[in-house]
Design a protein around this nucleic acid. Structure first.
Lengths: 111, 111
DNA sequence: AAATTATATACCCATATGGATATGCATTGG
DNA sequence: CCAATGCATATCCATATGGGTATATAATTT
């Protein structure tokens, strides 16, 4: 079956470095395709394909503006990812707390 | 060039639903492979391969325990992902604020 | 209407993937 | 020492991928 289709979910869509670059660029402001082509240094068809994937998972919206197509970030699409990682956050922070506790104990023993 | 190797970074490693399941299972407690096989309902070789990917990006650690290999979550590995999405958080929250503003305006107009 | 600009899509290719199955390799138990 | 257990690895396959290049489509300019 190979890997799940990239269009299936946001996790896959965002696993592509180029697509993260696109999102980063759109986080600053909305942009037409050719501006993204410039920024990424990729061929235009590839940018369009990445944009399509991002569209399909709802990470970006498009708007026709004359003969340009202006892409805009839809940040909400990233929330599921945020929620998932956030559920792990306390785990690495706990570990940090443990380290602090140990340092605290060492300090007390010194006195 | 096909997609970047899954072993390349944590984003790709975590893009696989099965691997997220593994991490979720390990978030509760460390587990030997056969326990993960049970939980995922996947063939053992596949679980081992997913574990290898997770190991290579540092998302899990292994420990030999008799003839078992006990896997443990390494939550820190997820921090880069957290940091990346977190940088977008204010964007979807801002939008929420805008919505609140609009509702506020509507309410005032009613009065 | 023709030429140009801005995108999207179609097709080709090499490669990476995940699942299936078979096998190798330790460690432990009899 | 041999069988059993617990994993890891190798090989095979169908499919999805991303990049390259060519082409289709739509809007604008001349």
């Amino acid at each position: 079956m190979a890997r799940a289709a990239t269009t299936a979910d946001t996790f896959n869509a965002v696993a592509e470095p180029r697509r993260r670059e696109i999102l980063d660029a759109l986080a600053q402001r909305e942009r037409p395709v050719n501006e993204l082509v410039e920024i990424l240094g990729l061929a235009q068809p590839h940018v369009s394909r990445h944009l399509r994937v991002l569209r399909e998972v709802g990470a970006v919206d498009v708007r026709d503006e004359g003969r340009q197509r202006v892409y805009r970030l839809n940040p909400q699409a990233l929330k599921p990812i945020h929620d998932w990682v956030a559920s792990y956050q306390h785990l690495w922070e706990e570990r940090f707390d443990l380290l602090e506790d140990v340092l605290e104990d060492l300090k007390e023993q010194e006195n």
